[in-house]
Design a protein around this nucleic acid. Structure first.
Lengths: 345, 345
DNA sequence: CTGAAAGCGCTTACAG
DNA sequence: CTGAAAGCGCTTACAG
């Protein structure tokens, strides 16, 4: 591979001139420009970007740390980041932590995990990334996970409460509010809810939205209609049976994810309850399985691509100085996807 | 951020000595090593990797080009690449082409697409990646897509017929053979098959496997049992109905992907055919939807993580000179996942 | 408009 | 064992 010196010799000019034509600076004559360009074409010369980066102290690359790229939310977020970055001439160094493989649900391992993440951040900084986007595997508080501040970091699909942190995720409460309102608008008055792990902030926010929607519509909250789940299919099945076996069963159920909704569908099937005729069901996440179910599930789509794009945008704004006072926390709207599991009564 | 010169001054040694301790070279006294290490700790100094790369002409990074990171196969392949690369001290620059967004099924756009890919390869080479792994969105022949040979390229989930190309994907024929043999072993004699697009090499290979299995078991191939599909759910539904409405319907169906299997499940449901009691069904791909169906689908899992790992391994072997004569084409075995849609008769 | 020279932050013979 | 110096491939004042 030739370098700029080779090109300058072949073209009979200085390396400065070659550099000038490479960077389209207007201070070079059309004639010499053509001469240089010709040599570049002939030799298939490609300037060495890292040498340039070293000199100008700008790499135009950002690091992405994904907790687990095989989790359903992550590829689209990464895709969104990539798209925005590419359009703004930034490149991406990817680092997939494989968090689940490494620590599973073993929360003793969190200290080790924190260390792993710090090391990855340091390596990325060594590689001169200008900023980092962290992509969570599930939406939660990760304050304190990363203490390095050599470089700006934006969090997506998770959040940090540090003063300076910018976090981008989605609005659980509004989404749950809208689902519940939607059901109420369809004349449902007995609306069951199957939750995720109650300890999660996500779950609590959605519960708030659910209850606020009931309240706004002057509906009483019936504790019998609330079943505390754990995000898993099996639990949806169990709790679905419980709800449907109530003396006065709900006419609609809001399941906090599509997985549990699958369990509820099977429970209903076994109990001879037809969806949507006798039971309306709404899921959450718009995962691939949601349109594989029979009936196809009405569910809430997550703004994953937008989270990625906005993450990249926020970071790049900060890097270019347009982001002096970036919004600390952005919660994007989800979007209801109407399919076949809900009906008006 | 301090640089090596700052550290050398603070420690009262030369930059050469700092470099030596940084790289753990044994030519430095324990005492001075400690002194230098202390300064490094105090200043939180991190060596600039790109400066080092420029000097030693080795970046330890590989580029990944994904056709579409949101396609189901891709995240796991990328995860596998990342895992192997990380363990061998390589980093990854990711570039997602968003092929479907850019060209869809518009094959007129293929020239433009080829140009896009070439440009991305050039940019990666400029960034001094040592090699590239190309990840296809679906398994097919892409000979000629990339003509750049500045750097070794390995193809995953697709293949090139160029002499020098190394391609890693999976063995369609054997997988189809095993599915068919599995069904035959369960005493099925009337085995329907719903294919993907007949024009695809994948589909043809699977057909070969299917027919070879029949032949090996002295079963006659019945053309009525072969339905030419197109990978889509709706077509599965249509062809499932056709197969099940035959005067002598099959007792088992091999669907060439999980999507069409979903359509077949619905078709069977409508016709009152119970799966698995009256019909056994096997899918292909082990997608998320396959365990969301009711009954949960028996299907063929793709060795995605392994494809990624082996891709990274092949590339890194070539880069380190261990791969002088790398295998040109590696087809990995798929693995049957037994669930609830198949039964012995 | 063009070129000579310094310098980005490292590493590596080479001399001492 | 340690240091002075050259050089990786670029860019950028600066002088002409």
């Amino acid at each position: 591979m030739p370098n700029i010196k080779d090109i300058s010799k072949l073209a009979g000019v200085s390396t400065a001139t070659v550099s000038n034509v490479l960077n389209n600076l207007p201070k070079v004559t059309l004639e010499t420009r053509e001469k240089v360009l010709q040599v570049i074409r002939d030799t298939k010369y490609r300037p060495n970007t890292i040498a340039k980066s070293l000199k100008i102290k700008k790499t135009n690359t950002i690091g992405i740390i994904t907790e687990d790229i095989t989790v359903f939310n992550t590829p689209e977020i990464v895709g969104g980041i990539n798209e925005y970055a590419e359009n703004h001439n930034y490149h991406i160094i990817l680092n997939n932590i494989m968090m689940y493989k490494k620590i599973g649900n073993n929360y003793d391992a969190i200290a080790r995990y924190t260390k792993t993440v710090s090391e990855i951040v340091e390596v990325l900084v060594s590689k001169q990334v200008e900023g980092i986007i962290y992509v969570g595997a599930h939406c939660r508080d990760i304050t304190g996970l990363i203490e390095n501040h050599a470089v700006p970091i934006v969090y997506t699909y998770c959040y940090s409460n540090r003063e300076t942190a910018v976090s981008i995720y989605y609005d659980d409460e509004t989404a749950a509010y809208e689902i519940t309102k939607y059901l109420i608008g369809l004349n449902h008055r007995k609306i069951g809810i199957v939750t995720g792990l109650l300890s999660s902030a996500q779950c609590q926010d959605r519960l708030k939205g659910y209850q606020r929607a009931l309240y706004d519509s002057h509906l009483l909250f019936n504790p019998e209609y609330l079943k505390a789940g754990n995000w898993e299919w099996e639990m949806g099945y169990i709790l679905g049976k419980e709800l449907l076996s109530l003396p006065d069963p709900p006419s609609a159920i809001f399941s906090m994810n599509d997985m549990m909704a699958g369990g509820i569908i099977d429970a209903a099937g076994e109990l001879g309850v037809n969806i949507p005729k006798n039971l309306s069901l709404v899921g959450f996440d718009n995962r691939e399985c949601s349109h594989a179910y029979s009936p196809k599930l009405t569910t809430m789509a997550l703004p994953l691509n937008e989270i990625g794009k906005l993450g990249a945008q926020s970071l790049i704004d900060i890097l270019s100085g347009n982001g002096e006072h970036p919004e600390r926390t952005i919660k994007l709207r989800c979007q209801l996807i109407e399919r076949q599991s809900v009906v008006s009564i």
